[in-house]
Write a protein that binds this DNA or RNA. Structure first.
Length: 114
DNA sequence: AATCAGGATACAG
DNA sequence: CTGTATCCTGATT
């Protein structure tokens, strides 16, 4: 038996928490929020720095990218490509740059962090 | 080296 | 058409 708090390494989400859906048409920002809402499971790779402001930090870019790749069935996914998609959110008003930009720190725009 | 910034192009739904 | 995925060049940390 593996302790639920130390479940990582080989299988990141075999016992996946599929929120009732198949996990198909999910947007990246929604996926990131799903991880942020499960700190018990993903707190080591992504967490809020300022929840009310929608500021969060990706602590383990490799793992978050790997999880995203699994969710979208894109085995070649990596942080370079995932971050490119996040950058597209700036122009769209889904995310914005933080006041003092720090590496791996992003911020949701008001309606999206709720 | 890793991450950030975008433009260009490809692709799936 | 939209929302990435992929690829690339150059800048910054």
């Amino acid at each position: 038996m593996v302790s639920p708090l130390l479940a990582d390494d080989a299988d990141e989400e075999t016992t996946t928490n599929n929120n009732g859906r198949g996990g198909t048409h999910i947007h990246l920002w929604q996926f990131l929020k799903e991880l942020l809402h499960q700190p018990q499971l993903y707190g080591s790779c992504i967490r809020w720095l300022d929840r009310p402001k929608g500021v969060f930090k990706i602590e383990d870019s490799v793992r978050v990218a790997r999880l995203w790749g699994k969710r979208k069935n894109r085995p070649a996914m990596n942080y370079d490509k995932l971050s490119r998609s996040i950058r597209q959110y700036y122009k769209k008003g889904i995310m914005k740059k933080t006041e003092r930009s720090q590496r791996l720190v992003y911020q949701f725009c008001h309606p999206y962090c709720l």
